[in-house]
């Protein structure tokens, strides 16, 4: 069983929900990411979504765009992100790591080479924002051969026939985008999310994570009552941006946010 699936099974047995923080690798500088990942795990994160910086993050709002720009100012490449995961795995063999980003850096490396390198580094899942299942036949097969989960997005506008198709193509968990918009946009409507999740669950037994628009303890808790996982990104990346000049304080400050969300979710 994949690290992701066993993580969700364990949580379900404990009656808890997954806290899934997102940070962009290499933001604001290469040395920050590894201690930050460990600090988030210690504060109660269950799965880490690690952003692969891209020059043109079309689906992201200004917060994550700027994170990409900071990471790219130090030339953080896909190979560097994989190195961070490999280092993380030296001391942590249990927390799943999902790479989240855009296709072109993977395209340039080559799908086969990427599958091998990601597997070697200890990556558990890949969420490629601009690679829908229709275009992912070859990619999906190569990832599956290396036991790496391919995680897909579902949107408020995704029709039921497509929900079924996407869930059939994906594994690990499915990521429900809770608002129409880019990352970090307007706050979400929990009732609306709950009714969408009911529809999604008619088509899959996979855990459903919810992201976009979760910004504080209250929204994390509210979403944890209806979803299997709570994905939080822009609020953490904002904190990283604030402390870009005091990098040694970043792991503790971000972990304080995730730790507080953890407590709110477990209440």
């Amino acid at each position: 069983m994949s690290r992701i699936s066993s993580c969700f099974e364990k949580l379900q047995a404990e009656g808890r929900k997954a806290l899934i923080p997102y940070v962009t690798a290499g933001d604001p500088a290469p040395g920050v990411t590894l201690p930050l990942m460990h600090a988030m795990v210690e504060s109660g994160a269950d799965i880490i979504e690690l952003g692969v910086p891209f020059s043109d993050p079309m689906a992201d709002g200004p917060v994550i765009q700027l994170a990409c720009e900071r990471a790219l100012s130090h030339n953080t490449r896909l190979v560097d992100v994989l190195s961070v995961v490999a280092e993380f795995r030296q001391t942590n063999q249990t927390t799943p790591v999902v790479l989240m980003g855009y296709l072109n850096p993977i395209e340039v490396m080559g799908y086969g080479a990427f599958a091998q390198a990601a597997s070697d580094a200890g990556v558990d899942g890949v969420l490629t924002v601009d690679l829908p299942p229709e275009e992912a036949v070859e990619f999906g097969a190569l990832m599956k051969a290396k036991q790496i989960d391919v995680i897909y997005l579902l949107a408020p506008t995704t029709v039921e026939s497509r929900i079924e198709k996407i869930c059939a193509a994906g594994s690990g968990y499915v990521y429900y985008v809770s608002v129409k918009g880019v990352t970090g946009s307007a706050s979400l409507d929990v009732n609306e999310v709950a009714s969408r999740l009911d529809i999604i669950r008619k088509h899959t037994d996979m855990p459903v994570g919810v992201g976009f628009g979760i910004r504080d303890d209250a929204s994390a808790r509210a979403i944890s009552e209806v979803a299997d996982g709570v994905i939080v990104g822009s609020v953490l990346v904002n904190k990283i941006a604030e402390l870009a000049d005091q990098q040694d304080k970043i792991p503790e400050a971000v972990a304080a946010i995730t730790g507080s969300m953890r407590q709110a979710m477990d209440k």
């Binding site: 079309m58 601009d130 949107a155």
Partner: peptide, 20 residues
């Protein structure tokens, strides 16, 4: 039908744009 011109083209977008 998928918008491919040989190896090129296609529809490489986030799910948030797919319905539109």
């Amino acid at each position: 039908q998928g918008g491919h011109f040989g190896d090129f083209g296609g529809r490489y977008v986030s799910e948030t744009l797919m319905a539109a």
